[in-house]
Design a protein around this nucleic acid. Sequence first.
DNA 1: CTGGAGCTTACCATCATGGCAAGGTCAAGC
DNA 2: GCTTGACCTTGCCATGATGGTAAGCTCCAG
Lengths: 148, 148
Amino acid sequence: MSADATDARSIDARSMYTRLMNIGEAAQASGISAKMIRHYEQIGLMPKVARTFSGYRLYNQNDLHLLCFIRHARDLGFSTVQIGKLLELWHNQQRPSSEVKAMVSEHVRTLKQKIAELEAMQAELQRLVDGCHGDQRPDCPILDRLAN
Amino acid sequence: MSADATDARSIDARSMYTRLMNIGEAAQASGISAKMIRHYEQIGLMPKVARTFSGYRLYNQNDLHLLCFIRHARDLGFSTVQIGKLLELWHNQQRPSSEVKAMVSEHVRTLKQKIAELEAMQAELQRLVDGCHGDQRPDCPILDRLAN
DNA sequence: CTGGAGCTTACCATCATGGCAAGGTCAAGC
DNA sequence: GCTTGACCTTGCCATGATGGTAAGCTCCAG
């Protein structure tokens, strides 16, 4: 372990420069609910953080950084399993960037697939909506289509 | 109840023209798994169908028609709750088509929203992928972005 | 009559997230 | 110092659509 203060990994609960937070503040700062932070810890996505004598979780800047990473990945649609792999790659200084690229490309493919499916639904539904007069009469091409 | 043979609703287990099926055949014919057919029955989306003396479910053409309606709606992305409403409208001969149109339009809006979200993710990820050399070196703009 | 396919119910799992309840802790104000 | 309210802890249950599995019953063909 390097003691170089510019290395983010050297910041931990022992650092005098680290402001410690309870889970509520960490939740606010990271944009992840306290509930989910505990959940991520439980499934092993987050390491177990420090605790006060009375059992309150304590988050330092390093932990917060990790939480933010998770949130960014989550916001980009990665599953927790995928986020776990991304974190592994992030922490592994020897990773080849090709590995990251491959993983993310695969996710992009999945997204494109899902988008295509939703667009197909949307197009068909829009077509049906456009073909429905939408007045007081019961006659309805939308229901007709669903029924046949 | 009308006895008019051209009225689909008059076809039931008592009709001599209705071929009865077990759940497996109904599943094949409708494209919905037997498991899900039972589930739809349990949550009240399907009425309870007839049973043999020994308890096997029996599906007639009317039931099959209903199952197909459900499958079409499901394939267009409607939730079971929404499908329940669609079925109500379908069965209600007095419905105004405007009501159907409104429901479906709302669903289209939801789909568009979801598509937009996924597209935003996809675009950002694609941008990151394009900016990553993807070779043996550990340097990786994708992870950098997630970390900051 | 037997074997295998098909049916029954009931329970558990997924995935990400929220809610609730019962109880402990902490800090601020009186 | 004591009270109060905000915050924390764990644990359990729920969502929604779907799949799996297990134990046991039924049906049909050979």
